[in-house]
Structures are given as structure tokens and as C-alpha cells.
Design a protein around this nucleic acid. Structure first.
Lengths: 122, 122
DNA sequence: CAAATATATGAACACATGCTCATACCTTTG
DNA sequence: CAAAGGTATGAGCATGTGTTCATATATTTG
């Protein structure tokens, strides 16, 4: 959906902590699209509850099913999406699949969103 | 800004606020729903570009139309949604409607999202 | 008031989304 | 290997969503 790479050098230096110029990302369609995909993953009630449950610890599909109160199939489908979007990782452990948040970015977004919704005007 | 937001105590920079226990919000269905509604507002390409444009300054519908490259009607419909969700405010100025971000929460979410998408693994 | 400019809104439509159902797959155990 | 527990996936369906089109409303100007 987003255009192919545009010539802009948004990552000035790979190695070091260039100041995070988030404003410059607003000119990069690919970054914008990627951002909406992440927000979209967080925008569904079931998915958000799954991710919320994973902030505490990694969990199996069965655990998530119980915690979120939806069918096994529904959980599995949503986990598939979250995995495809890169928000969670999965590993096998015997018969079970254990899911975990992919990195701290996800927890940060959840925290910021929750906190701001908790204080939201009106 | 994003660094100030990472971790659990998100507003300590401001001074006096009690530590924000975002984890407790995970038990409040209303807060969860409100959060998903905010993320949902940020999850559409057009809406995100509108909000992104508003991080620079307030703008009229016509400006947003040019900046986002979609029809006047589409912009107007999306602005309606953003207004209903409380992410933007509007004021009349002559024939024009001037829209602005409702508060810093919105800019923060955009910044965090963009920054993390920019660094997203893969 | 008529015309022009700027924005808003309802209806309709094409497409996306999230669920269920049925079933297949994978792993351990007997 | 068969059976059972645990998970994944495709199809189908009902509902939601973003856009366009046509038209309505609002505001300034002649």
C-alpha cells in the first residue's frame, strides 16, 4: 500500500543514538503505514486483552483462552495476526505453543495507551 | 520525549503526580475499551496522516485535504470521527473550520508509535 | 438576496474484519 | 501405531468501515 522506498535518509547513522526524530517519519509513507498497522493490532478488544495478558508473562494458547474468555479458534486466529505483525513471538513447548510479547515496544505502547485512556478528557 | 515515556513511571518528569499504575487498568474493561478506541482512531492511514499534519500546527479542512490527498468529503468524515473520539477540536474562523489536536496525549501517542515503527524489528 | 467558497452529512457500495464451525495438524503417551 | 490433548487453519457469514456521490448547510461578498 505504501510506496516503494523513497530516497530519504531517515536513519542517519545506524550505530549510535541519533536523537529520535519522530517528526521526520511523518514524511515516510512506509513508516506511517507500519505505524498504523501496529495501532491496528492494538485496536481490537480481544487482541488488546491478549497483549495485556502477555505483559505479565508469556502464556500458552489455553491460558490466553481462559483469560480472555473467547474460543480457542478465535484466540488462535488473533495470535496469528499478532505474530504476522511482529508483536508477539511463539515457541513450542511440548504440545503447547507459548506466546510472548516480541519486545518492550509493545509493552510501552500498551502502557502509554492505557494510561492516556485512563486520563482521557471526558 | 519517548524516553520519558518508557517504563512504568511515565509522568514523574512532571513532578508531583503519583506513579501511574497502568497495569491496574488492565482489569478495567471500560479503560481497555477506551484504549482500543484511541488506537483504532490512529489505525487508519488517512486519519493518521491528518493527525500527523496537526502535530505541526492547527489546520483548516482545505489544508488537510491538500496535505493528505484525499477528497474533501473523506477528510470531513474522518474529522468527524476524530472529533467524536475526542482526539481533535474544531473552531470556526470565517468560512473555514480549523482543527487541532485535542491535547498532548495525541501527539505523544503519534510520537511513540512512529518512533517504534521506525525501529521495528524487520 | 444571489453567488461563491468552505465544510458537513446521508446513502450506498465495495471491501475488510472477527467470529464460529469443522477439520487438520502436531506432540506426547499408552 | 492409536488415542488424546493442544493448537492451527480454511470457509462462510454477519457486521463494520472508508470512500464516493449528491446534496445540504454555513459564511462572506457583490
Amino acid at each position: 500500500m505504501a510506496d516503494a522506498v523513497r530516497g530519504k535518509e531517515l536513519h542517519l547513522v545506524d550505530g549510535e543514538e541519533a536523537p529520535d526524530e519522530w517528526a521526520s517519519y511523518l514524511e515516510d509513507d512506509d513508516v506511517i503505514y507500519a505505524t498504523t498497522q501496529i495501532f491496528d493490532a492494538l485496536a481490537d478488544y480481544t487482541r488488546f486483552r491478549i497483549l495485556g495478558a502477555l505483559t505479565t508473562s508469556e502464556r500458552s494458547v489455553g491460558e490466553l483462552q481462559r483469560l480472555c474468555g473467547v474460543s480457542q479458534s478465535a484466540i488462535s486466529h488473533q495470535l496469528r495476526l499478532l505474530r504476522d505483525r511482529g508483536l508477539v513471538t511463539m515457541r513450542r513447548e511440548g504440545q503447547r505453543s507459548i506466546y510472548a510479547l516480541a519486545d518492550e515496544h509493545v509493552a510501552t505502547l500498551i502502557a502509554v495507551g492505557l494510561e492516556h485512556a485512563g486520563h482521557w478528557p471526558e
